[in-house]
């Protein structure tokens, strides 16, 4: 089984985790057109390369992000969501 390294709990079998899908941009509902809002809702990053996605470690209910290659399944890194905030 694939190993995913939880930033809080360390390396664990991936079936301890739940995927919450690719990270999405946060468009402003006030200024975004209907067309773009629909795109925001229904489209997700499905590239064959590296995607950034949300994961939940189920036993500890901890949410974090992973950079994973969606073709090779290689996990490049995992990190706490506060790093996103720091980057913004």
């Amino acid at each position: 089984m694939k190993i995913l390294t939880c930033p809080m709990n360390g390396p664990r079998n991936i079936n301890e985790f739940q995927s919450f899908g690719p990270l999405k941009a946060n468009p402003d509902p006030e200024t975004t057109s209907d067309q773009d809002w629909a795109r925001h809702l229904f489209r997700a990053d499905n590239t064959r390369g590296v995607i950034v996605e949300w994961w939940r470690h189920v036993p500890s209910n901890y949410f974090f992000l992973a950079e994973r290659n969606a073709t090779t399944n290689e996990v490049i890194r995992t990190f706490d969501p506060s790093e996103l905030e720091a980057a913004q």
Binding site: N9, R12, E16, H57, V58, P59, S60
Partner: peptide, 12 residues
Amino acid sequence: IAQTRVGYVEAI
């Protein structure tokens, strides 16, 4: 401490 699954349930 391991927060994981023990006996098929989420456990610590």
